[in-house]
C-alpha cells in the first residue's frame, strides 16, 4: 500500500515537525522528545492536562492542544504507547506547580508507561493524577481481563478536564470532572476496511467485500465480531443500541453524541450516520444537547465509524460548551 511518507521509521518525527511548522505560535516540541506542548507551557496558575498514546489517531492527541483543552501530548510510534521517559518529560514541561492530570486510554501499554512516568515525575515533586478512560462497550469489562479500551470518548474527557483546568480549578477537581465523563460515556465502533500501518504496509486484517467488523478498537485490530455488510441505518442502529444498552439511561436524559470517522471515511457518510443516530435519540426520548460529527479519534486510513453517547448534567454541559481553541476543536 502506498503512503505519503518518506521512511516508516521517520513518520512520527516528521509529522511532529510538520505540525510545529504549521502552528509555530501554538505548538512547541520538547527538544529530543516526541512530545508537543503549548507554546506557552507551563501556564501559570493552571493545572496541566496532558495525554498521549500511540500515533495514528490524529488529530488525537496533539490536535487538542490549546486553550481550554490539553497542555501537552506525547506521540508514541504508530499504535505504540509512548515510553515512560517521554511521558515524564511532558508532565514536567506542563507543570506550573499546580500539578498535572494525565488522561490515559485503557491499554496495558499506556497504563504501565503512564504509571512509571507518574512515579518518575513524583520523584521530581510534581503532583500527578491519572484518569483512565475505558469507554469502549464492545469489550466486556471484568476484573480478570484487560478491560475495556479507551476510544473516542477520550476527547470528551480532554474537553471537560481542560475546561475545568482553564477555570483555575485545583487538580482534584479537574480529576473529578474527568472521571464524571468516564463514568457516563460509552462508544461502539465498526470498520468497513482495515487500516494500513506505515511499518507493515499492508492491511492488518482482511475483510471481504460483503463483510464488516463490529466492535473494533482504534489500533487496526479486528473487532469482536464479523458480520455481513449492512446499510448505514442498520449499522447505526446496531452501534447505538449497544451503547445505550450499556449506559442504561433514563428517558429524558440529556446527552452529547459523537459520530466519529475512523480516518478513511468520507465526511458525507458520517452525516448519513448522524441522521439515523439523531432519529434514534428521539426514539429513545433522549435530549441531545450537542451532536458532534467528524474525525476525532482515527485509525490511520481505516474506513468505518464509531458512535459515542455521553450522559451530561449541567456541570458537564457547561464544561463541554466552554471555550476551546485547539487545532481540531474550537468552541
Amino acid at each position: 500500500m502506498k503512503k505519503l511518507i518518506n521512511d516508516p521509521a521517520d513518520v512520527v518525527d516528521e509529522m511532529l515537525d510538520g505540525m510545529v511548522a504549521a502552528y509555530p505560535d501554538r505548538l512547541r516540541r520538547l527538544d529530543g522528545y516526541e512530545v508537543l506542548v503549548r507554546a506557552d507551557a507551563p501556564v501559570d496558575g493552571k493545572v496541566g492536562v496532558v495525554s498521549g498514546g500511540g500515533s495514528g489517531h490524529e488529530p488525537t492527541h496533539a490536535g487538542y492542544i490549546g486553550d481550554g483543552m490539553l497542555d501537552g501530548a506525547a506521540a508514541g510510534q504508530v499504535f505504540t504507547s509512548p515510553t515512560a521517559d517521554q511521558l515524564n518529560e511532558m508532565v514536567k514541561a506542563c507543570d506550573a506547580g499546580e500539578g498535572v492530570l494525565c488522561v490515559v486510554k485503557n491499554y496495558e501499554g499506556d497504563v504501565m508507561n503512564f504509571e512509571t512516568a507518574g512515579e518518575m515525575a513524583a520523584m521530581d515533586d510534581v503532583e500527578v493524577e491519572q484518569v483512565v478512560v475505558n469507554d469502549d462497550v464492545a469489550v466486556e469489562d471484568s476484573l480478570y481481563t484487560s478491560g475495556r479500551r479507551g476510544v473516542c470518548g477520550t476527547i470528551l474527557v480532554h474537553k471537560v478536564a481542560g475546561a475545568k483546568a482553564a477555570e483555575g480549578a485545583e487538580l482534584a477537581e479537574v480529576k473529578r470532572v474527568a472521571e464524571k465523563v468516564v463514568d457516563n460515556v460509552g462508544t461502539m465502533g465498526m470498520a468497513l476496511t482495515s487500516c494500513v500501518t506505515p511499518e507493515k504496509g499492508e492491511p492488518t486484517f482482511d475483510l471481504g467485500e460483503d463483510e464488516l467488523e463490529l466492535g473494533i478498537g482504534i489500533h487496526g485490530e479486528p473487532g469482536t465480531q464479523r458480520a455481513d455488510m449492512m446499510s448505514a441505518d442498520e449499522i447505526t442502529e446496531h452501534l447505538t443500541e449497544k451503547v445505550l444498552d450499556d449506559l442504561d439511561l433514563d428517558s429524558g436524559q440529556e446527552v452529547v453524541t459523537i459520530v466519529n470517522g475512523m480516518g478513511g471515511t468520507p465526511e458525507m457518510e458520517l452525516f448519513v450516520v448522524n441522521k439515523r443516530l439523531q432519529e434514534l435519540m428521539d426514539d429513545h426520548d433522549l435530549q441531545v444537547h450537542d451532536a458532534w460529527v467528524g474525525d476525532y479519534m482515527t485509525s490511520l486510513d481505516m474506513m468505518g465509524c464509531s458512535v459515542t453517547v455521553c450522559a451530561v448534567d449541567d456541570e458537564l454541559k457547561e464544561l463541554l460548551d466552554a471555550p476551546a481553541d485547539t487545532l481540531a476543536l474550537k468552541r
Binding site: S81, P82, A84, G109, M112
Partner: peptide
C-alpha cells in the same frame, strides 16, 4: 528498552 520500546512490551521486558 524502557525508553525505546513503548507499548506493553516496553515496560514488561524493559522494566
Amino acid at each position: 528498552l524502557i525508553s525505546e520500546v513503548g507499548g506493553a512490551s516496553g515496560p514488561l521486558y524493559g522494566g
